[in-house]
């Protein structure tokens, strides 16, 4: 049986994560600074691999709306982007939206850094006021 979504609620130190397999959307929202990032992101990598395997050429939209993340979460994000870029290279159209507050230079710069490193995904930086 294939489930059509994955939803992990935010905690004090980890983001809300939503995968909608039907819509082809992934969303990360909030802050991420767990001491052990692999415990938070390990299940996400597994779900993402399945998600990308099932995407089979359909459009995938990944949205990152993060206000802050620590260095071990940055490594996990890089890992996610490498998976997305790999899927895009193999023919799945992948769009990434990287949201940051208009005055948040740190998050904008992180977005630019990831953007520079990715070759196959369509990466868009979006300056937007936080939604809450």
């Amino acid at each position: 049986m294939v489930s059509d979504s994955l939803k992990i609620a935010a905690t004090e130190r980890s983001p809300e994560i939503e995968f909608d397999f039907g819509q082809g959307t992934l969303r990360f929202r909030g802050e991420s600074y767990p001491e052990d990032a692999s415990a938070v992101f390990g299940p996400v990598f597994v779900a993402l691999d399945r998600f990308l395997a099932e995407a089979g050429g359909r459009n995938v939209l990944a949205e990152f709306d993060l206000a802050y993340f620590n260095s071990s979460s940055a490594k996990a994000l890089m890992n996610i982007f490498q998976r997305l870029d790999g899927a895009a290279a193999a023919g799945t159209p992948v769009s990434v939206r990287w949201l940051h507050a208009p005055d948040d230079d740190t998050m904008r710069e992180f977005g630019e850094d990831f953007q520079e490193d990715l070759e196959h995904v369509v990466f868009t930086l979006v300056a937007a006021e936080p939604t809450d």
Binding site: A37, N70, S71, S72, A74, K75, M78, D113, D117
Partner: peptide, 26 residues
């Protein structure tokens, strides 16, 4: 420092550091 951060982001963490290098660069 920025270039070093980007380089380390792509590296697999070495056994003993558990991510210390990138933390110090941050």
């Amino acid at each position: 420092i920025k270039a070093y951060y980007k380089e380390q982001l792509r590296e697999a963490p070495d056994e003993r550091s558990r991510g210390a290098t990138i933390g110090l660069i941050e």
